[in-house]
Amino acid sequence: MPVKLFVSDLDGTMLPDGNIVSAENIAAVRRAVEAGVVVTIATGRMFEAALPVAEALGVDVPIISYNGGLIKSPSGRVYEEHTIDAATAHDLIAFCRMRGWYIQSYSGGRLRYAAPCDEAHFYENSQKLTGTPVGWEGLFAHTAGNCKLLLVTAGRAESTARAAEVSTAFGTHVDVMCSADNLIEIVPKGISKASALKSLAEKLGFSIEETMAIGDAYNDLPMLRAAGRSIAMGNAYPEVKEAADHETLPCEAHGLAAAIYRYVLGMGADAPVPLQRS
Rank of each mutant, 00 (worst) to 15 (best):
G68D: 02
S179L: 08
I93V: 06
G215C: 03
V264T: 07
E137V: 09
N67D: 12
E48Q: 11
V53T: 10
I184H: 00
D175W: 00
G12F: 07
A157S: 09
D85Q: 09
E34V: 03
D118M: 13
F170L: 08
A35W: 02
S199G: 07
V39C: 15
A54N: 04
R97E: 13
S230V: 13
M46I: 14
R229P: 04
M233N: 12
P16E: 15
D181V: 06
A169P: 05
G68S: 03
G12K: 10
G135A: 03
R97G: 13
C117E: 12
G69A: 00
G108K: 14
P272W: 12
K72P: 12
E252G: 00
A164D: 15
Q104R: 06
R162M: 11
P16H: 15
E165G: 04
V134K: 00
M223Y: 02
P116C: 07
P222E: 01
M212S: 05
I84L: 11
G266Y: 01
I84E: 05
G44N: 06
V174A: 05
H90G: 07
A94D: 12
A94N: 10
T132Q: 15
A87Y: 08
A196R: 06
I93T: 02
A161D: 10
I41R: 02
T168Y: 04
E210S: 00
C178S: 09
W136S: 06
G266C: 05
G171P: 13
V21Y: 15
D181P: 00
T130S: 11
